[in-house]
Amino acid sequence: MTEYKLVVVGAGGVGKSALTIQLIQNHFVDEYDPTIEDSYRKQVVIDGETCLLDILDTAGQEEYSAMRDQYMRTGEGFLCVFAINNTKSFEDIHHYREQIKRVKDSEDVPMVLVGNKCDLPSRTVDTKQAQDLARSYGIPFIETSAKTRQGVDDAFYTLVREIRKHKEKMSKDGKKKKKKSKTKCVIM
């Protein structure tokens, strides 16, 4: 069974824990209790493949930012979460993405942009803004509501699919490099 290491990042209060708990335990946590770091595991079937999701729910508070490099190193894919009623959390996505790329030393890291709290009427981040940002990053965008469960499975499952595509691409690139290195030079 394939294991996928997913990391949920975003500013404090955007609903990272609520999304994760909704996926794992099928219930909505409405009281806000700032996370330092929590880890969850769940076995699911995605596109006919049974897999184990190892999900790291991270601290959004700035005082825990020193811990970010460590979990970013171990993560295979990242859910970059903002709240649709919090423009600052949307603007912060850029910083999370840049930090992930720096730590992973790669421009090509599996990510999904997630606009959470889409059940709320007080939207300050337009869907088109988020779609445009995701398009500019070359990553999928999904709106979710941890409260109603809308888009929750889709967000995590899409990230797994992005990781699969990335692994497939990397193995193809690896095979191309191996083929090239088999060419021999004969000096007579």
Rank of each mutant, 00 (worst) to 15 (best):
V125L: 12
P121L: 11
L79E: 00
C80W: 04
K117G: 14
G75Q: 05
D105Y: 05
R102C: 07
D126L: 08
R73K: 10
E91T: 07
K104D: 03
C118P: 08
E63P: 05
C118N: 10
D92R: 06
I84M: 15
V125F: 11
G77P: 01
L120S: 13
D69H: 04
Q99V: 04
R97P: 04
V103I: 13
P110M: 03
K101G: 07
D126G: 10
E107P: 10
I100T: 03
I100E: 00
T74D: 15
C118E: 08
K104C: 12
A83E: 15
K117V: 15
V125R: 11
R123H: 13
I84H: 15
P110R: 03
L79M: 07
S122G: 14
C80M: 12
V81S: 06
S106R: 12
K88D: 13
N116Y: 01
D105W: 06
M67P: 04
V109I: 12
C118R: 07
E91S: 08
L120R: 07
F82H: 10
D119K: 05
K88W: 11
I100R: 01
D126A: 09
E76F: 09
R68W: 03
I100Q: 02
P121Y: 10
R68G: 04
A83Y: 02
F90K: 10
L113K: 00
E63T: 06
H95R: 14
K104M: 08
G115S: 08
P110F: 03
R123A: 14
V81E: 07
E76T: 14
G75D: 00
F78Q: 00
K88Q: 13
M67L: 14
V114W: 01
L113N: 03
G115A: 14
F78E: 00
Y71M: 01
E63A: 05
A66W: 05
F90S: 10
R73N: 07
V103A: 07
V109H: 03
E63I: 03
R102W: 04
E76C: 13
P110A: 04
V125S: 13
F78I: 03
C118H: 11
D126V: 08
K104S: 10
C118D: 13
L113P: 00
N86D: 15
G75S: 07
I93G: 03
F78T: 01
R123W: 11
K117I: 15
I84E: 15
E76M: 12
T124H: 12
M111C: 05
S65D: 06
N86F: 02
P110V: 04
V81W: 00
Y96P: 02
D105V: 07
Y64C: 02
N86P: 03
V103E: 07
F82P: 00
K104T: 11
F82L: 11
L79K: 00
K104L: 10
F78A: 00
V103Y: 13
V114T: 02
D108Y: 09
P121G: 14
S106P: 06
A83W: 03
M72P: 02
A66Y: 01
T74Y: 12
G77E: 00
E76S: 07
A83L: 03
K117L: 15
R97S: 10
